[in-house]
Structure formats: structure tokens, C-alpha cells
Design a protein around this nucleic acid. Structure first.
Length: 331
DNA sequence: CATACAACCCGCCAAA
DNA sequence: GTTTTGGCGGGTTGTA
């Protein structure tokens, strides 16, 4: 996993699941309350641990401290806002994301992304792409089994900047439907890492069998995948993905499985068929191919993959079908 | 799980 | 006017 100070003991399996649930709950809380003040006391309270104990657990399992996590989530939100809403001043973007002053915002932004917010907004963020690439390389040099993933991820990285013409062709043929979805209460299992990683497929298998055992895959409950991050902005290895299944009020979180509400609203939806490796590029098509000329702008809700009420994966090819739903609002 | 302490970071003022 | 940098005190954080 991540590099950790040697003195920390990673908790043993059964207990670890409970910790994972607390950590997920706290991360959900952070993301939902970025503009509030999020100090250690408050977050430990959310997790029902003493500040000291929770700080230690969080660091051991996520590889970063709570304060670092809060700061990073704020920076990532601000970075998105800077690109998404050009009319708003950098200062108010900073306050929206929960920074206490413009000065701190500029300083921490530059320390994290390597450029000032102003330059980032002007599109001078290619340095960040390089940085993410090299970070990805470092991650996987520690783990040789992922050699193939490096290649695919780097190719994806390059293709999104270098080849706009091809996406234009496809945009014309892309069929996108506008849909309004309501909020959905779901049970979820969370993955944190790199999009496109085969570990996500394995998590889906674990999650599906668990859900089936609990009678949740019954042709009535909706199955969703939720991408929690923009891979162009979040550091490789820190992108979140939740495998979700709809549940009613009576369902209680247990062990590794948490409960959250996936926010509904207006989405631009397009059907997808392919393997887990292909899905990132399909998202890219929707985002950079369809969205710019659609008359809509991205909304800051989470992007959703809907799988209907059952998942069918071709055992031969690994192909599956779902619908990609991009949160949008009118311009 | 608590205390205690140094380092770090935030928030503020000034200014380029 | 907005964004960015520099400098500084006091509070928070990280860890022994």
C-alpha cells in the first residue's frame, strides 16, 4: 500500500473493516461540508473516536493525515471550479471550497498543483499532467504487477489532449439522452486508487456476491457505480469509486458496507458497452466530445454509471453494459 | 488512550 | 481591482 511510518500497525482484518466504514463516513462528511470548518475534533466526533486515535487510524489506512485530506479535497474542488466557472473570481472560488483567505489558497494551491490558481485557470496545467504521470509511475514501480496499467493509463492521459479531432467525429454519432433522476439511498463499497485498475472489477464481484446474499439483487433494486473524482485533477491513486445498490430505510450499514445518498438531478446519459478498460475513454467522449456543444455545463454532483437492476458480465470477454450519466445544468 | 511540545500552517497586513 | 508574494504571531497539528 502507501508508504507508512514504520511505527504504525495496520489493524487486523475484521477490525479493519469497521475502521474503513468510519473513514468512508468521514470522507463523505468532508466532501459534503467542505465550506464549513473541518478540524480534527469535529471529524473525530463524526467517526466516534477520540481525536488522537482517529488521526492515527486514518493515517495508517489512507496514507495521509486528516488535515492533508481536507486540504486536498478543498484544492481539488477549487481546481474544478476554476475551470468550470470562469466568471467567478478566484477569491470566491477559494471561499466556496472552504479556504479562510485568498492568500492561503494561492499558497497551498501552488504547493499542490505547481502553478498558481490564475495560471491553472488559463489552462497552463500541463505541468500537472506530467506530475500525475510521474506519480503514477512511482506508484507502480513499487508494484510490478501493474505494468500494464501504467501503459494504458499513460496512453489515456495523452489521448485526451492530443487528439481532439477524433472525438469530434464521434461526438456527432454519440447518442445522449437528458434524464432527471431522483436521489437514491444506496449501500456502497468503496475503492480508492486509480481508475481502470482491475481491482475495481474485483471489488464489483465481491460487492455483487455480498449484495446477492442480502437479497438486494432481485430485479427491483437499482445498481450504480459512482466516480467520486476527476482523474485529470485528483492525484493518481487517490481517485474514489463506489459500487452501489439501492436500499430502503431499514438497511443498516455493516462492516465495510456503508450507506449514502447519491444525489439526483439532471444528467446527460449515454449507453456504454465494453470492458472496464474502455469505460474511461467513454467518459472522456461524453465530457469533452458531447458536453462542450450541448448547451449545458457540468454540475458539481457525482458522475454515475447505472447498471439497471442486475449486472451481466460476459465471462468470455469481460464486456458489460451500462449507462454513463454526467451531471449537468443549463448554461 | 493522554499529555506535552516543537513544527507547521493558517489568517492577517502590506505591497508588488 | 484582482492575483500573488513576503513576513509575522498565534493556534493547530503531528508525534514522541
Amino acid at each position: 500500500m502507501e508508504s507508512q511510518p514504520a511505527s504504525y500497525q495496520v489493524p487486523t482484518e475484521p477490525r479493519k473493516m469497521g475502521y474503513v466504514a468510519s473513514i468512508n463516513r468521514v470522507i463523505d462528511y468532508i466532501d459534503a461540508n467542505l465550506s464549513e470548518s473541518l478540524d480534527l475534533q469535529k471529524l473525530a466526533q463524526v467517526a466516534h473516536f477520540s481525536p488522537w486515535h482517529f488521526h492515527r487510524i486514518f493515517l495508517a489506512l489512507t496514507g495521509e493525515t486528516l488535515a492533508d485530506c481536507v486540504r486536498r479535497r478543498r484544492l481539488e474542488k477549487a481546481a474544478r471550479s476554476l475551470l468550470m466557472v470562469p466568471a467567478v473570481t478566484a477569491k470566491s472560488v477559494a471561499f466556496d471550497a472552504g479556504f479562510g483567505s485568498a492568500e492561503v489558497f494561492v499558497r497551498t494551491f501552488k504547493a499542490h498543483f505547481g502553478v498558481t490558481p490564475g495560471r491553472w485557470r488559463l489552462g497552463a496545467n500541463s505541468g500537472w499532467a506530467d506530475q500525475r504521470r510521474s506519480h503514477l509511475r512511482n506508484l507502480h514501480q513499487q508494484d510490478r504487477r501493474h505494468d500494464q496499467l501504467i501503459r494504458t493509463a499513460v496512453v489515456h492521459d495523452g489521448s485526451m489532449r492530443l487528439n481532439p479531432s477524433r472525438s469530434d467525429e464521434r461526438a456527432a454519432s454519440m447518442d445522449v439522452a437528458l434524464k432527471t433522476m431522483s436521489d437514491v439511498r444506496v449501500a456502497y463499497m468503496r475503492y480508492t486508487g486509480t481508475y481502470g485498475d482491475p481491482k475495481i472489477t474485483r471489488m464489483w464481484q465481491r460487492f455483487a456476491s455480498l449484495a446477492a446474499r442480502n437479497g438486494l439483487i432481485d430485479g427491483k433494486h437499482m445498481i450504480l457505480g459512482v466516480s467520486r473524482d476527476d482523474p485529470d485533477i485528483a492525484l493518481a491513486g487517490r481517485c474514489g469509486y463506489d459500487a452501489c445498490v439501492e436500499v430502503d430505510r431499514s438497511f443498516k450499514p455493516a462492516g465495510e458496507i456503508g450507506v449514502q445518498v447519491v444525489r439526483g438531478g439532471l444528467f446527460g446519459c449515454t449507453p456504454f458497452r465494453g470492458t472496464a478498460k474502455d469505460i474511461y475513454e467513454a467518459w472522456l467522449q461524453l465530457f469533452s466530445g458531447w458536453l462542450p456543444d450541448s448547451g449545458f455545463q457540468p454540475d458539481d454532483r457525482l458522475a454515475i454509471e447505472t447498471y439497471g437492476t442486475g449486472i451481466e458480465v460476459d465471462p468470455e470477454t469481460g464486456r458489460f453494459a451500462c449507462e454513463l450519466c454526467l451531471p449537468i445544468r443549463p448554461l
